[in-house]
Design a binder for these strands. Structure first.
Lengths: 337, 337
DNA sequence: ATTAATAATGACTTCGAATGCAAAAATTAT
DNA sequence: ATAATTTTTGCATTCGAAGTCATTATTAAT
């Protein structure tokens, strides 16, 4: 029942008969301490259960050792894995993850305030849409930023991004090859950069093949939205040959809505393609034709870039684009007519 | 290109013609400052872009304002949502989430060291299996702990837990009602407390109905493990009427394996029940009969309990158990024979 | 108007580790 | 053995806000 008092470096120093500086140096890698004192200090420190206080260290070194990871609350099926990977990669570099979720863009100012306050060493932003002003603010505060899955070569920030462009083109090519003639695009939300990119690339590529005025409907990247949007649209529009969904979950939503309420099977009556390569897309009953994002490489690249930038703040912004893997599923069937 | 120097409370004080203490008090809620000084300070602070330094504050107040959330890397489909909910609830109480992932129990010591180091205000542990010693250590360091989804009334820690017991019983009852006679249990990993509880309750309940020696196979809570375990088992064992899977994803794995490689349909040839109520379980092509965990309530309870404990460290440990919702899907069909 | 009570303020210390600097000790060179 | 060099060491200061305490300004009471 003893109110355990924290053991400080002074306590250890007194006990070991050395100065506080000596204790400090023992726990700082790469500082010169004689073997004798090192051992002496280590022994008493262990005996007393001493651990350096990270907070005090942060204050004096001006480095928190924490990286802010900002996640928009828009559920993306990949995030859990991305988050876990980021955390793993960052842990290996002795950085901790401080988590921020962003409900809407309104909250961004608040998040930024907090970020200054916590003196994080850097920021990895998943799907939060920062504008120029935001990025400038980060730059002014000397906080390096890596944008995850947002291609922003023009901005003064590092970014790592899956090659949505290429992936969408592969999917469209596939649909054209298999003689699909009419299309519907189920885009992600309009305030998502990734969604906009995927949609525009699809439109452009279809136009390239001579198919213009492709109808577009929207959904918030989730299953129920997809079902709802698609059923609304299907009410008073002719059925397309193929639906190009912004992600796998929405592709599944379309397939289910078609099956349950329109009595249409995929791929017999309707081809559907997705994007991301999440687990659900690979389930036997769906097997979506999609493009799998290279998550491990993306997260690893994000962390590497951030650390590079932290260590070398004046290195120029870099933008990495990694290609996904085209996965041929069972959700596309060649059209004969 | 100006190396922006941090603005401190001293800077603001000087500029506003007051003392540093005054500035500090303005930014501390509930401290007495005259309206005049408050306004003066706020104005200059804003003009200078001053934000109190959280690190310095932590050091002096001995409160980091951070809560460690420990997640085992074992992918649980619920975690992303749990994490996001926890973060949301904690943010509202002005706590930040510091994320720790735990690869295996070996890493626990390291995580605990870090936790002391960061002086977190409390810990929420998802699925990490702490033993008595661990919990004692937390107690010794005066770090309140809430165990999430682990029923531990004996331990000196708070816990919040879905009523797995009741849920499993409902599922078994359903299977018995519908005249299932032979069973197979697909348990989660043996080192997971939740998995063990779900398995044992199922075994007990079946025994209560006079069904003993129910075979048990194992899987690591994931799809591919489930498929593999089930196919191995099916090779040289008679098919059961029903499979009781430890979670929805494994239930889906069983259904897919049965369909793809054993040419069996669910529920015609094989009934399957899951647990959790994840999105995938509700997809049209699966519609698993399952029990949905009350995630929002669980996370809210976890946060409430933790904060209560932080504010009132001597309150006695509490254990809350919340019931899930039984969801009747299409994966169970009454047997006639 | 004078005293009593209350509110506001600033000087100074504190939290715990890191580090520049000068002094001391250990090592090497002569 | 002495000087020159290098390595260790400890003192004192720093990081930035919070809070204690004594002092001063303000308000209320008589």
């Amino acid at each position: 029942m003893v109110k355990q008092k924290r053991v400080t470096s002074y306590d250890v120093a007194r006990e070991a008969g050395v100065s506080q500086s000596a204790v400090s140096r023992v726990f700082r890698p790469g500082f010169s301490v004689s073997k004798k004192t090192r051992e002496k200090v280590l022994k008493t420190a262990n005996a007393m259960g001493y651990r350096p206080n990270a907070i005090a260290r942060m204050l004096i070194t001006q480095q928190s050792g924490m990286v802010a990871v900002i996640i928009s609350s828009r559920a993306n099926e990949n995030y859990p894995e991305v988050l876990s990977q980021l955390n793993k990669n960052l842990s290996e570099k002795n950085k901790k993850v401080l988590l921020f979720t962003l409900d809407d863009s309104a909250g961004l100012d608040d998040v930024m305030e907090q970020i200054w306050t916590f003196q994080v060493d850097g920021v990895i932003a998943l799907a939060a849409h920062f504008d120029h002003t935001n990025l400038e603010q980060f730059a002014n505060h000397n906080v390096p930023v890596v944008l995850y899955n947002r291609h922003a070569p023009e901005a003064n920030a590092n970014s790592v991004c899956c090659n949505h462009d290429k992936g969408i083109k592969q999917l469209v090519d596939k649909l054209i090859e298999t003689k699909h003639k009419s299309f519907l695009i189920l885009s992600g939300p309009e305030d998502s950069d990734v969604a906009n990119e995927r949609r525009e690339v699809a439109i452009d590529k279809l136009k390239y093949y001579g198919i213009a005025d492709v109808p577009v409907i929207y959904g918030d990247y989730n299953y129920h939205d997809a079902r709802h949007s698609f059923s609304q649209w299907a009410k008073d529009n002719p059925l397309p040959d193929a639906v190009i969904a912004a992600n796998d979950i929405m592709a599944i939503g379309v397939i289910d809505e078609a099956r349950e309420n329109l009595n249409l099977s995929t791929p017999e009556d309707l081809s559907v393609v997705g994007f991301d390569g999440v687990l659900a897309a690979s389930l036997f009953n769906y097997q979506i034709t999609t493009v799998k994002q290279p998550l491990e490489q993306l997260t690893k690249a994000a962390v590497d870039m951030l650390l590079e930038r932290i260590e070398n703040p004046d290195s120029s912004p870099e933008s990495r684009v990694l290609s996904g893997t085209f996965i041929e599923g069972q959700s596309v069937k060649p059209r004969t007519r």
